[in-house]
Simulated assay, not measured.
Amino acid sequence: MISFSQDQLVAWMSPLLWPFVRALALFMAAPVLSSRAVPARAKIGLAFLVALGCQASLSGQPVVGLDSPQALAVLLQQVFIGLAIGFAVRIVFASVELAGELMGLQMGLSFASFFDPVSNAQVSAIARLFTILVTLMFVAVNGHLLLVVALVNSFQVFPVDAGVMQAAGQLQIHRLGAELFSTALWIALPMIALMLFVNLTLGIISRIAPQINIFAIGFPVTLAMGMVGLVTVIPLLDAPILAALDRVLALFGTST
């Protein structure tokens, strides 16, 4: 009769369990994969498949049993790191959406907002457009595969142990807030400069010819120039998005 000891079962399960938990936390927070359109069973199955497929490159990981005193701390570490990877990539999406909000505000389209069931919030039309574009670009550059690579590489940067606070201090997630605003301003800066020039020109015209109803011609001119600016800016989105994605994935030992 074939029998297995508890130590053997722990040695078999531990290398698979902790990558599975980290991958599942990633898929619950990462863009596209965390969408409500993706069933929970599909996320669980995909996380198990990724954890099983990366076993060949995760040799030498420590064995931590479920009955070990460190099991809870290790579980929290895996959930934290998985959520951190997803949150870092989501920062890139949020920065592009913020850039769209800034552009819409400058164009006078901030009132053209509607409820977005995906983000569960009110977003402007320009922000929604930019969100769709960055999602398509993310899939086009194999961003979903980069997430898997970042997950596997994260075990080299943050191995399985009980160092939850050490991982939090090393990641410094709070600095990603500055990344959000800097990337958003980088993307929206050409449009902001264009709209500033248009508003300055309209202001000069209103001073030179007071009989012109500047409010009647200001919105059509601003909207038309904004559309011209969008046509110019949208083809250039790949450079700042890829640069921001490269910076956030570098925290986990991955580059685009």
Rank of each mutant, 00 (worst) to 15 (best):
M1I: 08
I2F: 12
I2P: 13
S3P: 02
S3Q: 11
F4M: 14
Q6M: 09
V10T: 13
W12I: 14
S14Q: 06
S14L: 03
L16Y: 10
P19Y: 05
F20C: 13
V21D: 08
V21P: 04
A23V: 11
A23C: 14
L24A: 15
L26D: 11
F27T: 03
M28A: 12
A29V: 13
V32R: 10
L33S: 14
S35E: 06
A37L: 14
V38C: 08
R41M: 15
A42K: 08
K43C: 02
L46F: 06
A47M: 01
F48M: 15
L49F: 09
L49T: 10
V50K: 01
A51C: 04
A51K: 02
C54H: 04
G60P: 01
G60D: 03
V64D: 02
G65N: 06
D67K: 00
A71Y: 04
A73M: 09
L75T: 06
L76C: 13
Q77G: 03
Q77S: 07
Q77M: 05
F80Q: 02
I81P: 05
G82F: 06
G82A: 05
L83D: 02
A84M: 12
I85S: 02
V89K: 12
R90A: 10
S95K: 07
V96Y: 06
A99H: 03
G100N: 09
E101D: 13
E101P: 08
G104S: 09
M107S: 11
L109Y: 12
S110F: 06
S110K: 03
F111T: 14
S113C: 11
D116Q: 07
N120I: 06
I126L: 14
I126N: 03
T131H: 15
T131E: 11
T131Y: 15
L133F: 13
V134D: 08
M137Q: 14
G143R: 09
G143F: 10
G143T: 10
L145Y: 12
L145N: 12
V148P: 09
N153L: 05
F155N: 06
Q156S: 14
V157P: 00
P159Y: 09
V160R: 07
G163Y: 00
V164E: 07
M165I: 08
Q166E: 10
A167L: 08
A168H: 04
A168I: 10
L171R: 09
I173W: 02
A178L: 15
L180T: 01
L180M: 11
L180N: 03
A184V: 04
W186R: 13
I187D: 03
I192W: 07
F197L: 15
G203P: 03
I204F: 05
S206K: 02
I208F: 00
A209D: 06
I212G: 02
F215K: 03
A216P: 01
I217W: 03
F219D: 00
V221N: 01
V221K: 00
L223S: 00
M225G: 01
V228R: 03
L230D: 06
L230W: 08
V231P: 02
V231W: 05
I234K: 05
P240L: 04
P240Y: 03
I241P: 10
A244F: 04
L245W: 00
D246Y: 00
D246E: 02
D246C: 01
V248K: 10
L249S: 05
F252K: 06
T256M: 10
